[in-house]
Amino acid sequence: MIDLKEQAIIEQLAQRLASKFAEVPPTTVEDVVRAQYARFDGRPVRDFVPLFVERRASSELSGRA
């Protein structure tokens, strides 16, 4: 089950990355963030998931910019 607080953090993260990577279409940013977030499904320790998602998504989007 997805924690609503974690989901809100991921949504804010997607918005922040969309602003940072304005040359990348927002839907692409959302897709990248969702794909990175999905990599952590079922992992028991959730504390650092948003940080890991942000780092991986930012790295992937840097290659597209």
Rank of each mutant, 00 (worst) to 15 (best):
V33Q: 04
A18C: 12
Q36W: 01
A14I: 05
P25E: 14
L17G: 07
A35G: 06
Q36P: 03
V33N: 06
V33C: 14
S19C: 02
S19F: 03
R43M: 06
T27G: 12
P26A: 08
T27H: 06
F40E: 00
Q15L: 15
D41L: 12
P26Y: 03
A18S: 15
Y37R: 14
R34N: 14
A35K: 05
D41R: 15
V32C: 11
A14Q: 09
V29W: 04
P26T: 08
R43F: 11
P25D: 11
E23A: 14
E23W: 01
E23Q: 11
E30H: 03
G42L: 09
D31G: 09
R16L: 01
A18M: 08
V29N: 07
K20I: 01
G42K: 09
V33L: 09
P44T: 10
L17I: 08
R34M: 06
R34Q: 13
P25A: 13
E23D: 12
V29K: 14
R34T: 08
G42S: 03
R43I: 13
D31W: 02
V24S: 02
F21P: 05
A14H: 07
P26C: 03
A35M: 06
P44D: 10
V33P: 06
V32P: 04
F21T: 07
P44H: 08
F40K: 05
A38D: 12
V32G: 00
A35E: 11
R39C: 06
V33E: 04
L17T: 06
V29T: 11
R16P: 00
G42C: 10
V33R: 06
A35Q: 12
K20R: 15
D41G: 07
D31N: 06
V24H: 06
F40S: 05
A14L: 08
P44W: 12
E30Y: 01
R34F: 02
Q15K: 15
V32L: 03
P25G: 05
F40I: 08
R16V: 00
G42R: 07
A38I: 03
L17M: 13
T27A: 13
F40D: 02
A14T: 09
P44A: 13
E23M: 07
V32T: 13
P26G: 11
T27L: 07
R39Y: 01
R34E: 11
S19W: 07
